[in-house]
Structure formats: C-alpha cells, structure tokens
Design a protein around this nucleic acid. Structure first.
Lengths: 209, 209
DNA sequence: GGGCTCAGTAGAATGCGTTCTATTTCGGCG
DNA sequence: CGCCGAAATAGAACGCATTCTACTGAGCCC
C-alpha cells in the first residue's frame, strides 16, 4: 500500500466533501470499466476509453488505479460483493458441507456465465494479479463459511483452510476451461462435486437437531 | 492449427533440407527465449531481443511463433519434457498413489524453483494461454501415470481424470503463490500432501506382491 | 534457364498501457 | 481575502508487442 492513493479509503473519521467526491469518482470509473468489459472483454476496456467514459482524465484514472490490473481487480471485487450478498440473502440449503460448497460455487459460476466476456477477463486477471489481498482468498473464505458449520477464516484449522483453498483453485481452473469452451456447465458441476466430496468429507456439520 | 506455419512440424515423410534448417531455427529461437527469460522473466524476453539473439529477423520470429505467448508455451514445453525424462529415468518410489503424485509434483516444484524468473513467467502463461493442447493436461497425464497403477490418459475413468486434473490445478495455484512469496516450499509440500491424500485415496495400487 | 513461390530480412508503422509535463481548479486555513 | 498544496486536466511522450511493406534469395517445376 503506497501513500496518498485514494484508491482504497481507509474508513477513518470524517467523510469530508473531498472524500465523498473521490468516492463518486472511483465508483464512476469502476462502472465505466465494467460496462466496457462486459462488451468485448479486457481489450475493449482500454484505459483511455475508461477515462473518457468515466469523464476523468487519463492521469486521474491512473491516480485511482495505478495499473489496468488494479482496475480489473476492483471490478472483480464488485462481482464478489454481489455473490456474497446473494449468499447472505439466500444461504445454501444442502445438508452436507460439500453440498453447500458446490451450491456456492455453481451459483458463482452461473453469475459469471451471464457475462462471459467480463468473466473471462476477470478470472484471468484474478489469477495473474499480484494484489495484496488476492481475490481467491475471498472465495476461500466464502467456501469455509458456507461449507463448514461455524467455520470462518479465523476458526478454521490450517488443514481446513488448505482444503477450502484447494477447492477454490480447482473451481477457478474449471471456470477457465469453460470460458475456453472446453467444459460445459454440467461437466463443471460434476467435477466440482467429485472433488468437493473428497476434499470436504470431514468438515464439521451442525448437530443434526 | 493454421496452415503452413513451421512452428509444429507434422512429422511426415522426408526431412528435407528446408525442414531441417527450420528445425534449427526454431530451436535457436526457443533457446534464446529461455536464456533471456531465465534472467529477468517475461519482460526481459522481448520479441526484438529474442529475434536478435537468435539471429533472425523479427518477422521470422513471428512466422514461427505468432505471438509471444506461443513462444512462452514452447519454452514451458521444453521444461515439461525435462521433467518427463527425469521421471522415466527415476520413477517415484513411494508406495501409495498420493505419495507418488506428491513426489512428482515436488520434483517439478524444485525444478522450477531453480529458475524463479523463468518459472514465474512460464506458470502464468501456462494458465492464461489459449493453446490447443494445454500444458496442464500434460501434468495431469504425468500424475495419472505416476500415481495410479497401470493408469494412463486412456485407461483412466472420468472420475480419476477429474481428480488428477484437480490435483494438477491445485499444484499450479500453489506454485504461483510460492512465486509471489506467499508460500514456502515446505508449505506447498504440506498442502499438496493434504490435498493429494484426499483426492487420490482410492486410486488403484499394484497388487502388494 | 526463367519465372514462381515463399521463407527470410530490414525496418517503418500502429496500438495501447503507462509515464511525464505543464497548467488549472479548488477546498481549507491563516 | 488570498495563498498553498493536493487533485485534476489535456495532451505529449515512451516502450514494447504486433502488423505491415518492400525487397532479396533460394529451391523447384516446366
């Protein structure tokens, strides 16, 4: 994390006028970027074009997002927020840990399938990005909470964390294969089920009341 | 596969003079590329520089490798050849399927660690590349043969193939984390062991004679 | 032996991410 | 009120992958 970059606002005291307008600007940029990416993928999301659409100068864009990758990561972040919200609203109902994990992953898969161009760009970048808080970790966290009873990033054992992480990375890989046209949705589901049952077999389940 | 690209020689009848010199050229290019990448990673491996070092014109380089990615993939291919050779010469000796798989993967890990810059470039590209024969598949094949008794890409069940593929993708992901400095060799080993024992638990073992 | 084809060459041109420069705008503070 | 400094702006500049152009040379077929 470098100095006064407005990219991530460390939610401190006063939401000053300036902070607010920065927030607006940042939001507009991400929106413009997402819109462009959803038509035509990363290549359509050119920095000049994003800046133009967002109504900011190229330099300003680069102030908020020091590289194209950072911008892409921000867009992915929004998508994950959406998924997280959806899970909170309607938690997975399956009775086994692996069932719940599969539910979460396939829901995410469907979400991404809706915007293939965007998804492709985002997933690839997600893998490559050298970000401080990699987005794969967020998926791992989601999986832990969904799959294990009373489990979270904090309470999980190292082993559980490794297993959830492994499942997340398999999912990402399968998703990539789908976007390349080498998997159907059904194949992914089958493969994820196969892997999830093996990996999450001894995750804690709620006391069957 | 496009038309007359000399990149991949469809090993037909006569190794004509022309074919031979093409082969030499191709080899020189890949060597130059690998040498450059092993210092300074992908960014040091600039197309102009590769061409120069290989003693060919930029246009020629692009005739053999239509994009930088194709060149990178060729370099990765060489590395996998090396690993394959090493495994044939000295097959894994562990007694369980997962033990043998871990052996193979950790051997590959050590090989790649020796040239971190190269490895980083290669692994990333390996993930992203839109190649016809993705290199991940080759790792999956290696794992199948190493882990399962009398198993190969042809004889494996769909389930076994999915499981070996999953293990390969987890390994790639862990490797990437290592190259980013977020894992040590020991952590990877531990994680791969955890995952491999779960995934390969019911792979066929030789009749304990 | 002459023309055809096509690999090869040198190098200019293009596109896009990123950086740099000079200038302007504006909120806050003495 | 007037000034300071951070944030914005327009736009040029730079680097590198990729593409394009015009030319040369060597094997090959009739």
């Amino acid at each position: 994390m470098t100095k006064g970059a407005p990219g991530v606002q460390s939610e401190s005291a006063s939401t000053s006028l300036r902070t607010r307008s920065q927030h607006q600007r940042r939001k507009r940029i991400v929106q413009a970027a997402a819109a462009l990416a959803s038509r035509g993928g990363v290549e359509a999301m050119q920095m000049r074009t994003v800046a133009e659409r967002a109504g900011v100068a190229l330099g300003t864009l680069y102030r908020y997002f020091p590289s194209k990758m950072d911008l892409v990561v921000a867009v992915v972040g929004e998508e994950i927020d959406l998924l997280e919200g959806s899970i909170e609203r309607r938690p997975p109902t399956a009775t086994t840990p692996s069932g719940r994990a599969v539910d979460v992953l396939m829901r995410a898969t469907r979400g991404l399938m809706r915007e293939p161009e965007l998804a492709d760009a985002l997933i690839r970048s997600l893998i490559i990005a050298e970000v401080d808080t990699p987005l794969g970790d967020r998926m791992t966290g989601l999986l832990l909470r969904a799959a294990g009873h009373e489990l979270s990033t904090e309470t999980a054992t190292e082993e559980q964390y490794a297993l959830a992480g492994a499942l997340a990375s398999v999912w990402v890989h399968e998703l990539l294969e789908m976007l390349r046209g080498r998997r159907t949705y059904e194949q992914i589901q089958r493969r994820i089920e196969i892997v999830a049952t093996r990996l999450l077999a001894d995750f804690p389940t709620p006391p069957s009341a």
